[in-house]
Computed example of a mutant assay.
Amino acid sequence: MRYAIVIEKSDNNYGAWVPDLPGCVATAKTVEGVQKRIQEAIEMHLAGMREDGDPIPPPTSQVHYVDVAA
Rank of each mutant, 00 (worst) to 15 (best):
M1S: 13
M1F: 13
R2M: 12
Y3F: 12
I5E: 07
I5L: 11
V6E: 14
I7G: 07
I7C: 08
E8Y: 01
S10I: 06
S10M: 09
D11F: 10
D11C: 07
N12Q: 10
N12P: 06
N12V: 09
N12G: 09
N13Y: 09
N13R: 14
N13G: 07
Y14N: 03
Y14W: 13
Y14A: 00
Y14K: 02
A16D: 03
A16Y: 00
A16W: 04
W17F: 15
W17C: 08
V18H: 05
V18W: 04
P19Y: 05
D20I: 01
D20K: 05
D20W: 01
L21S: 05
L21M: 01
P22L: 07
G23H: 08
G23Y: 07
G23I: 09
C24G: 02
C24V: 02
C24R: 04
C24E: 03
V25E: 11
V25P: 05
V25Q: 12
A26R: 08
A26K: 05
T27K: 00
T27V: 15
T27H: 07
T27E: 10
T27W: 00
A28H: 04
A28V: 01
K29M: 06
T30S: 14
T30D: 00
V31I: 15
V31C: 04
V31L: 08
V31F: 04
E32A: 14
G33H: 07
G33V: 06
G33E: 09
V34L: 02
V34M: 07
K36S: 15
K36W: 11
K36Q: 15
R37C: 01
R37H: 13
R37M: 11
I38Y: 09
I38K: 03
Q39H: 11
E40T: 14
A41P: 00
A41K: 03
A41L: 03
A41W: 02
I42A: 03
I42W: 04
I42K: 05
E43V: 08
E43N: 10
M44R: 10
H45W: 12
H45E: 01
H45A: 02
H45Y: 15
A47F: 06
A47H: 07
G48E: 02
G48Q: 01
M49D: 00
R50H: 06
E51L: 08
D52M: 12
D52W: 00
D52G: 02
G53K: 05
G53I: 01
G53T: 04
G53N: 03
P55T: 08
P55S: 08
P55L: 09
I56E: 07
I56D: 03
I56F: 06
P57Q: 02
P57W: 03
P57E: 07
P57D: 00
P57S: 01
P58G: 13
P58A: 14
P58V: 11
P58L: 11
P58I: 09
P58N: 09
P59R: 00
P59N: 04
P59C: 08
P59A: 15
T60Q: 10
T60K: 14
S61A: 15
S61P: 07
V63Q: 06
V63D: 01
V63H: 00
V63T: 10
V63L: 15
H64A: 14
H64S: 14
Y65K: 11
Y65P: 00
Y65R: 12
Y65N: 08
V66M: 12
V66A: 10
V66Y: 08
V68A: 09
V68F: 04
V68M: 07
A69Y: 11
A69L: 14
A69F: 09
A69C: 13
A69M: 14
A69I: 13
A69Q: 14
A70H: 13
